[in-house]
Nucleic acid binder design. Structure first.
Lengths: 223, 223
DNA sequence: ACCTGAACACCGTTCAAGT
DNA sequence: ACCTGAACACCGTTCAAGT
């Protein structure tokens, strides 16, 4: 052993999959999904666009690798010691914030659900559900529901963030939506009109966690 | 009144937004998201690609219109009379199956969450939550969680369906995945290995509905 | 007012040619 | 084994010209 795997560390010369993925992530974060082109990538890597194809089969594979890298990073950063419910909330928040910071990960997770990424999340939540004492036969359903909810809301939140003009503040944005809700047809949208005020004041992250708790309560009922 | 709005009915001549959207949906259903190009659309409509731009601003707007049309159709087809919990399950199943039959709707709902589509779903579920007697202050959170879960899982399910080779049966597919789960590293994936058998036998639609019930149970606890 | 279709700018991907 | 970069096929979108 000893210096056996030095090669994987610093290599300023030549391309490598890691280097390509790293620069792809930079591009995606800086300019969004449309910013990632093989031409832009090649320029930043000071090479020809064809060279990238030596290390990666196509763009879709590159996106999978990039989003796997983010999910793995987020999961690794998690502390390991917390009570089960608290631990699940931590995992949920990490993913929510990770996807919020890298919205393209969300899109990717949905376009081509990556098994490796999903498995990591599934496993972490599964262990906590087990620790909560959920019955053997309810475990699969409980974990599936939680994972789906957490990923689903995180991705929707990230997609929503890209929707509105970034010069508008969050408060202004909510105000605009709430005003639109209040102006809806009273016969067609009675309920939505009634909760418009709550829409104006709600906090997305808090609602997300409230939803996680709702599911956890439902799960706890079963055991 | 009387024959005042006849013009909106049959017009075999000339283009119209409705006609364009209709053909776009046919194309999307038949050949998937990549099949929708302005050139293919123009050919099917027997016109030039530029003509379409007279009726629709760009491709993104066309996708929004097409997916709104599907959601509206699905919501309209719903019966109106059922007990609240049953009604919510009906809405959930309609969306799940609608998105399963038109996977591109799912992708679209996430790429650019359409306010009109979301509002329709939010309103329908909201009325039922109100009918369940959920307290005023818990209503917004309850409906948000349900809508997020229902849309999220439906979209993920549709995306998963496009993943694997269509020649493989569902049972074969699950068997393959379960085998892969069982072969995972015992130290890194103890939980996932343990539930691999349940993965092999689970039914996606049933798990989806079980998740809805979990949330409904959590909601009912609060009131 | 509405349609036509060539033209433009820009992609992902391939591949013969190089080192 | 790995890199280069021109070439190919294919997009969305625009726009001068038509009716």
């Amino acid at each position: 052993m000893g210096k056996a795997k030095r090669a994987s560390e610093r290599r300023d010369e030549g391309l490598s999959l890691e280097r390509i993925v790293e620069v792809a992530i930079e591009l995606l974060d800086a300019e969004g999904e449309d910013g990632l082109t093989f031409r832009a990538l090649a320029t930043r890597l000071a090479t020809g666009s064809g060279a990238i194809y030596w290390h990666v089969a196509n763009k879709s594979e590159l996106l999978v690798a990039a989003s796997n890298a983010i999910v793995a990073r987020e999961m690794k950063a998690l502390g390991t010691r917390a009570a089960p419910r608290k631990a699940i909330r931590n995992i949920a928040v990490s993913l929510y914030e990770g996807i919020d910071a890298h919205p393209w990960v969300g899109a990717q997770l949905f376009r081509a659900p990556s098994e490796t990424a999903m498995l990591q999340i599934f496993e972490r939540i599964g262990r906590e559900i087990q620790a909560m004492g959920v019955s053997r036969r309810a475990q699969f359903t409980s974990v599936s529901a939680l994972v789906s909810y957490i990923i689903g809301v995180s991705v929707q939140n990230a997609a929503n963030g890209r929707q509105h003009d970034p010069r508008m503040s969050r408060a202004e944005f909510l105000k605009t939506i709430a005003a639109r809700w209040e102006a809806l047809d009273p016969d067609e949208y009675p309920f939505t009109r009634k909760v418009a005020a709550q829409m104006r004041e709600h906090n997305d992250r808090a609602e997300f966690l409230a939803g996680v708790d709702l599911i956890l309560n439902g799960i706890a009922l079963g055991c």
